[in-house]
Amino acid sequence: MPSKGNVYVIDDDQAMRDSLSFLLEAAGFDVTLFESALKFLDALPELAFGCVVSDVRMPDLDGIELLKKMKTRPGAFPIIIMTGHGDIPLAVEAMKLGAIDFLEKPFEDDRLITMIEMAIRQAEPAAKSEALTQDIVARIATLSPRERQVMDGLIAGLSNKLIARDYDISPRTIEVYRANVMTKMQANSLSELVRLAMRAGMLDD
C-alpha cells in the first residue's frame, strides 16, 4: 500500500506515541515519533513535508511554544494539537497560533485521520473545506440572537454565570440556551464548538 504521507507525532507519553504510530500506520501513513518538541525541532531541517500531531503539555517545550516557533520558520508544516486537559482559552490560543485542529484525548480516530489527510493534501481540499465552512455558517444562522450571544460567551471561555451576568438573565436559562447551541451546532464539547467557530471565521483576532 503506498504511503498516504508523513506524520510526525510528538508526545512525552510513551503509550500515546506507540498507540498513535500503530493507529496511523494501520491507516496508511508513514509515522515518525518524537518524545519532545525540542527533538522534533532538531530533526526538522532533515524532514520531508508532513503533518505534525503534538501534545500540548510537555516538559521543556510545550505545544503552544512549538506553534510559536513553527510560525517563524519557512515552509510551515500543518500542526494538530492534542490535549489530555482541554480548556477553552488554550484551544483558542492554539487555533490562533495556526493549529489546524485541537483534539481532546481520547479522540475519535476518524476525526484525526480525516484532519491529517486534509492537512497533507493542503491545496486540494479547498472545495470540500469550503463546503464544510458553508455548512457551519448555515448552522450558526439557525441560532436565535440570544443563543448566538451565549455561543459568543462560551467561545470566549466564559462560565455560565458570567454570561448570565453579562446579559442579566439567570444561569439556569443560560444552561437551556447552551444546550440549544450545542445541539444546533452539532458540537459534542466546548473545544469542538471553538473549532467550529474558528472555521466559520468567528474567532479572527
Binding site: D13, A15, M16, D18, S19, G84, H85, K105, P106, F107
Partner: peptide, 10 residues
C-alpha cells in the same frame, strides 16, 4: 485521558 486515548488508538 492518556491511557484512554492509547486504548482507543490501539
Amino acid at each position: 485521558n492518556q491511557p484512554l486515548a492509547a486504548i482507543s488508538n490501539y
